[in-house]
């Protein structure tokens, strides 16, 4: 079984990213990493291959530094990587990104494409679906569990009321939540081996896409600080804490 995982390199995944003067998220010259949300997808892919055999390819679009994200996935155990990097892609919006990723995925054979539910920095949460539609394959998003049974995808998709079991023939795409798999730490051996694994670096031209398809359709017009109410009172959890909270509930007429 051939698996593809869409992995994104994100700036400062634990902190708050910075906006540059052009209102784009600063991606260069800051510390970055494989998006923690995508580690779940890498782990889920590795587990599927351990159960059924096959190969895991990582596909990413980003600056050259995004190689670090691919290395991380490779050291976890993925077999190879593809990085699409090109100056015209700076500030690419989601449609452009989806076109690039779909074109990169289409270059190889795949049975299942996995992705995170939403990226830590962009958080649009729609990119994998646009990719699925461009690839003309079905999808199950927001899965807390993915399995392949008798050659079909079975996913537990979280819903507002509980979860649905979704069944789909392959090839298909699924996005996974943090409940799907606990990412492994790369071992020293894994880190050493990752250096030998093939990573292909491609440009937009290599993918046969025209720069016309690369135009972004969203421009930031203005950025301003929101009006936030100032912090209230902070007290120690002494004897009166419970009654102060109860006063608030009484004031709101809920008790």
């Amino acid at each position: 079984m051939n698996l593809v995982v869409l992995v994104k390199y994100v700036p400062e995944p634990q902190g708050i990213p910075t906006l540059g003067e052009d209102f784009l998220v600063v991606r260069e010259g800051v510390e970055g990493a494989l998006d923690p949300g995508d580690e779940y997808a890498v782990e889920a892919a590795l587990q599927l291959v351990e159960a059924h055999g096959g190969d895991v390819a990582l596909v990413s679009m980003g600056p050259e530094g995004a190689m670090a994200a691919l290395r991380r996935g490779l050291s976890m155990g993925a077999d190879r990587g593809v990085l699409v990097t090109d100056p015209v892609l700076r500030g690419a919006d989601i449609l452009v990104t989806a076109r690039v990723l779909a074109a990169a995925v289409r270059r190889g054979d795949y049975d299942l494409v996995l992705a995170g539910v939403e990226s830590t920095d962009g958080s649009t949460g729609t990119l994998p679906m646009t990719v699925a539609e461009l690839l003309e394959i079905p999808s199950a998003t927001f899965a807390r569990k993915v399995e392949v049974i008798d050659g079909s995808l079975r996913a537990e998709r979280q819903t507002e009321a509980g979860y649905d079991v979704v069944e789909s023939p392959l090839p298909a795409l699924a996005t996974v939540t943090g409940s799907a798999a606990e990412p492994r730490y790369p071992t020293l051996k894994g880190i050493m081996q990752s250096k030998q694994k093939p990573v292909e670096q491609l440009s937009v031209a290599d993918l046969g896409l025209s720069t016309e398809d690369m135009e972004s359709s969203q421009q930031v017009a203005s950025v301003k600080a929101a009006t936030v109410k100032g912090p209230g009172e902070v007290i120690e959890a002494g004897d009166e804490a419970a009654s102060r909270i109860a006063d608030i509930l009484a004031d709101a007429k809920v008790i």
């Binding site: 449609l95 729609t126 679906m129 990719v131 699925a132 539609e133 359709s217 969203q218």
Partner: peptide, 23 residues
Amino acid sequence: TTYDSRDVAGRVQARTGSTLMSN
């Protein structure tokens, strides 16, 4: 912004080639 609508919107975007603004 619900999971079902998000899925539909993402797919529609691929077909219409139009912009899709989230959040």
